[in-house]
Amino acid sequence: MSVDEIIAFVDGLGGTLTLRPGPGDGSPEIAWGDTFFYYAPDGVVPRTQPFATIVTKDYPDDTRSRLDRPEAFRVNVFAGTEAFTRWTGHTPREPAGSDPSVPDIVFAHPVYARQGWLAVVNPGGRTEPAVRELLRAAYDAARTRHQRHHA
């Protein structure tokens, strides 16, 4: 899956606000080139964390995925405790066991695993169905939270 394919999939779910920070939009330079997904049918950035992101480079506190390689990117998805445990075989509180630089595998996010986030570097044939399932579930959870708060 390419970055554009992931964005098109999430945008197709409806009510998604997709932010792609870049020069001149007031966003911090470190975020330029990355993508942030929110459930926001009104088009207003909510005061919550995104339900998924795509990062295209290493961050100062997040280098273990080696996104400094050509064409490397990582999709990050909030999965919650139950799905996190199902995908990794352990709870978010336990240490991660997978190498977060290996492409096309689902693994515990190298920084936000304790909060229930999963990630995939350069999703491909092995993980495309999983990435779609995880994105849809994260979207559904964000939509449900939004509807509860706006009811």
Rank of each mutant, 00 (worst) to 15 (best):
R136S: 13
F36S: 08
H146S: 05
T63A: 08
G43W: 06
V55T: 08
I7W: 00
D34W: 02
F78D: 05
R143E: 07
G22T: 11
V111P: 04
E133Q: 14
A138R: 01
T144P: 04
T63V: 15
G22D: 09
L135W: 04
G33V: 01
P50Q: 06
A83L: 15
V10L: 07
L67F: 01
F84I: 03
S65V: 08
F51H: 03
G15I: 09
I30T: 12
P46C: 12
A137I: 03
F36P: 02
V120I: 13
P95I: 11
T81Y: 06
A138Y: 04
D140M: 12
G89L: 07
V10G: 03
E133Y: 09
E94L: 14
R126V: 11
Y139K: 08
R69K: 14
D140I: 09
P23F: 11
I30F: 13
P46G: 09
E133V: 06
T53H: 07
R136E: 13
V45E: 11
S2R: 14
L17I: 10
Y39I: 10
H149W: 12
Q49H: 11
A119H: 07
Y39L: 12
D34V: 00
P100S: 10
P21A: 05
T56S: 06
F9A: 01
W117V: 07
A137R: 08
T88L: 14
L67W: 02
Y112K: 10
D62E: 05
P129W: 07
D11A: 12
D58T: 10
T88R: 15
A108I: 08
P92Q: 01
Q49S: 12
D58E: 12
D42V: 11
T88I: 15
D99E: 11
F84K: 00
D104Y: 00
P95F: 10
P41A: 13
K57D: 00
A52Q: 08
P21L: 02
E128C: 04
P23K: 12
R69H: 09
P50Y: 04
Q147T: 14
Y38V: 11
G26T: 01
R74T: 01
V77A: 03
L134P: 04
N76W: 04
R148C: 02
A40Y: 13
G125T: 11
H109F: 13
V10S: 02
F51A: 02
P70I: 03
A40W: 14
D61R: 14
T53R: 10
Y38E: 11
D58A: 10
P92C: 00
P110Q: 09
V120S: 06
A72E: 03
A8N: 02
E82W: 09
T144L: 13
Y38C: 09
R47A: 15
R69W: 08
R64S: 14
T48P: 00
A8C: 02
P28A: 13
P46K: 11
D62S: 01
R47T: 13
R64Q: 15
R86C: 04
T18F: 07
V106Y: 00
A119T: 08
V77P: 01
E5L: 08
E29S: 13
P21E: 04
T48N: 00
P23Q: 11
P28G: 10
G33P: 03
T16I: 07
I6P: 01
R126I: 08
S101I: 09
G14D: 02
